[in-house]
Design a protein around this nucleic acid. Structure first.
Lengths: 191, 191, 191, 191
DNA sequence: AATGAATGAGACTTCATTCAT
DNA sequence: GATGAATGAAGTCTCATTCAT
């Protein structure tokens, strides 16, 4: 027998899968219900509306991204090594969770995103903090950490999407080179 | 009085505007019709279906992006200067054409994109060619040009989206710094 | 309160009535819904599309015609008497169920009929069997039973349609004469 | 260059062909226009509306049926031979003009037919007259000629439709038998 | 006479949501 | 809590008809 949490999770995961394949408007509630093995009405015990479901799914996905961001991190390592691991950690999360990547991108570019109250600090705050630390410790150039976040996340996202598009030209050595180039540009050139 | 091209263009532009505000499924054909000042049925003279309209709009937007990419370019300039100008050219196009940016991002992450036959070479082929040239002329590191495209386009897109999100922290000096960091990482360190 | 079968039947019966009056294209689904006292969407729980509804209605009507064919029959009677009763049985069914007659005729002459897989044996198989028996028992001429089916059904259908057209000239004695003429032509002239 | 009559005829013939294939509601005016090689608007020079077109087409088809009815007739022949020729004449017209047969049947069972003022005497008046003559000349039983019309036309129509349905079991000898049976039933048994 | 782009009412159908069980 | 039949507003699209050329 299942408990509530199981069903709620099944609904969220089903929605995530289906939206990747069919988009928002190609994913009716009836389809979510069938995929999650619940009745259509059941979804409304857990979520007020389709919009609520999608917005809660966004929080759910954000949480998983945040978890992934520093899962591989180890503060005892050299900062450069940490940067390489963080970059790859998020990249691999996206590759292994394409439905999250696709959903996240669809969501942030959709009108749903407008309706959401801006969060105190966003999903990538930990990344921002990480770069702030790197600057303080004089590993990185003394610039607005936002800049480094943009560069890092932009490259991860784009690399993952290029890979997802079936262009498998981005292999191991290429990934390493991307990170190296980024690091070279971002790192503080000490005397 | 209008001619055919006018109506078709009005429909495309209206769709672009409305999808930015309301997304695909928040933009019924009736709304497009009203916004474009045509009858609902008229849209179907120019486009077989809503899907066709959206896919043709994608081609239309791709064309504009490609035009924007090298509008500011000047082959007689130094390669580093050209890189700065190309980066800013696309960035500014996105900022000044937020509807194109939002639509493009929504489209590529949507199921519509799956149905489209993969183009021979994509929108960013000119960027790829630009980097290939830079490598040949020994301005840039001898890596797969794809890598540089990922880095450049990822940073432009992300910067534009951060700016669009209302986080106006990215001002002139920050933009300059982003490009500088990228350039430093990508450039060939000559002896 | 109604059960499922009730609603499905109400939809079928409403469609039958309305198509008699208005034809296929004069009977929108909204009209069926109103006449059957259900919401428009409800029809789509029971039938995939208007086409499906009409094709299922055809099966439904065929069933009723087959039921009517031998309702009046009594195998213990003389074959000639049975023939007269069968002829009148179907004739009266048509007269009392004009909507079925009209629908049936509209359907078989329509493109819907083309799409249907040909049935193993058709609605009038029982009539064919009846004539086969009559031939075996030497009441009827030894011809292809198909011929007799054509003659019998053709005359019933045409008589019913003449009557329906408001030409009330076909009264009891005339009907009797039609059957007699047919019988005389079909019967085996015994020595 | 074409004249008016040519275009009007092309429209009528196109409509006849298309309605056989697609039915009334599957045959938009635009399709008729394309098939007849005229502009949509041109149809409205010749016919007030789609309904008018279809009703005029009915008259057109009726005319052809009436022409066919006695094309093969020869008053100098024996009445029995004439009957056989008239039956086959109409049967063959239907077989060779399936679009007329299908259209006629669709029309008479459709609501269009209701709106038409009842004609003074209908399409099959010549058949009725033929049978009246046969009775007067004591070839046929002294019954209401209407009866004989029903039997004859019913059998012709049904035989043609059986043949059209692809059931090719009705061959030459069977046709001959059908007419013989009818004749035997209808003919006056002289002493 | 002929054209065919344009119109817009209305068709078919979908789907978020409700509610009696 | 769970169900899923029922709802009906709203969506996409069609097509008879018009009218400026």
């Amino acid at each position: 027998m299942e408990n509530l949490a199981d069903k709620k999770k099944a609904i969220l995961e089903s929605t995530l899968d289906l939206i990747k394949e069919n988009g928002f408007h190609g994913t009716p509630m009836s389809m979510v219900a069938k995929h999650a093995n619940v009745a259509a009405g059941t979804i409304y015990h857990y979520f007020d509306s389709k919009e609520t479901l999608i917005c809660q799914l966004f929080s759910y996905v954000k949480g998983r991204i945040m978890d992934a961001l520093f899962e591989q991190d180890d503060e005892s390592l050299d900062f450069r090594v940490r940067f390489f691991r963080v970059w790859r950690g998020l990249y691999e999360f996206y590759i292994n969770n394409l439905n999250s990547l696709v959903f996240f991108e669809q969501f942030v570019n959709s009108p749903y995103n407008k309706k959401l109250p801006k969060p105190e600090h966003d999903t990538f705050k930990p990344l921002h903090d990480f770069f702030t630390l790197g600057i303080e410790q004089e590993y990185l150039r003394p610039v607005n950490p936002k800049i480094l976040t943009v560069l890092a996340h932009g490259s991860i996202l784009t690399a993952a999407k290029v890979r997802m598009a079936g262009k498998i030209e981005l292999q191991e050595p290429e990934l390493e080179q991307i990170i190296e180039i980024l690091w070279d540009g971002m790192a503080l050139k000490k005397k």
